[in-house]
Simulated scan of single mutants.
Amino acid sequence: MSHGTVVDLFCGAGGLSEGFRQAGFRVLAGCDFDDTAGKTFAATHPEATFLGGRIQDVTVAQLLRVTGLKPGQLDVLVGGPPCQGYSVYNHQRGVDDPRAGLFREYLRLVKGLKPRWLVMENVAGLTSIADGGIIREIEEGMTSLGYKVDYKILKAEEYGVPQERRRIFFIANRVGAPIEFPVPTHGKNLKPFVTIWDAICDLAPVENGGKEEPQKYVAAPRNPYQAELRGNRTTAPNHSAPKLGSVNLERLKHIPSGGSWRDIPYDLLPEGMKRAKRSDHTKRYGRPRKTDLACTILTKCDIHWGAFIHPEQDRAITVREAARLQSFPDSFEFSGSRTEQYTQVGNAVPPLLGRAVANKLIDIDALKADKAVA
């Protein structure tokens, strides 16, 4: 049974739409400028049409044609306009950055498609840019098109994702339904957080710089998380480690579980880090404990920038391990070069977080239908 239809703007590899699909929605189309991510989306969403190219060139007529819908019939328009122009790391460019205007393209398509619900996600740092100016513009834009809107910062780990990740979600509708956000399922007095080791311990050991080929699992699924992400697969794709140079391998030998750059002997530190305060760069060259949550998965799982060293092996985490920490099923095979694969994983909304949001919309719609009947 389908709970409704979805179009995903700025879909990337399809993390948000995968969450909606897992909740029972039918994904009809996805749009993205990144053709390599589009290949991943197309391969993993065979029921949907992928539209490449600039969002500015995507028309309402085109989306109605490929979905077979009329204005007002689409149930949910989802998407995360790229945020580099207004991420927490880029205060200078703020509102004037052309990329910051991409949410206006989202609103342009809302105006023509008239979906029942809107779900837009972005970096949590959006709240601090231009004193909240972008937040206000998004709210005012949605309100002016007849939508009731609210937003909240959600923590991925509270919904079963084995990673500390904060994202802002705007939820809006034009059908008079209340706006509610999913209630956390994991954390204190709830289910325990899913740890790094819960997520990856069934994946085969791999060599630093080993060759790219699907790897057999080393054990039966050891917990429900692994069982769900594996499905009926017998091998894990995208599970090969990038090649680290000899000086980095030497550094890794000194970093214990829970350790970081501070454990590297001074003479082995990169030049730029020899002057660093010990209170700085806390995640650099981090080797997380098995019982930790992963740090935020970035578009580069570079050990120089974060805690991306494998808990046991002297290597960086693989694309598949990063995907597991983002809650992607192993059936997702990421296209392109390894660099492009890491980018697709790091840019994505964790599917389990998307699914929690999707399930909340289903609950609200069911409640609204019950009230209408009553």
Rank of each mutant, 00 (worst) to 15 (best):
G94C: 01
N122Q: 11
T49C: 10
L9D: 04
G187A: 07
E137W: 09
G53K: 09
R284H: 14
T44E: 12
Y147A: 08
R174E: 06
A316L: 02
T291Y: 11
I134V: 12
E333M: 10
P329R: 14
L107Q: 08
T339G: 08
D267A: 12
F181L: 09
F33P: 00
A236E: 02
P256A: 05
K211C: 08
A199G: 02
N238D: 14
H310M: 06
G245L: 07
D263V: 00
E121P: 05
G15M: 03
S128N: 15
L325F: 04
F20V: 07
T291H: 10
D97P: 04
N90S: 10
R284M: 12
G19S: 07
A316F: 04
V60H: 04
L63C: 05
P237L: 05
T234Y: 03
R99I: 10
T59P: 04
A13T: 05
F169I: 15
S257H: 02
T318H: 02
D314R: 01
G146N: 09
T127A: 14
T185N: 05
P242E: 07
P182C: 11
I171W: 06
S128D: 14
L69C: 04
A276R: 13
Q56L: 10
N223F: 11
P351K: 06
K277L: 12
P71V: 10
E164R: 15
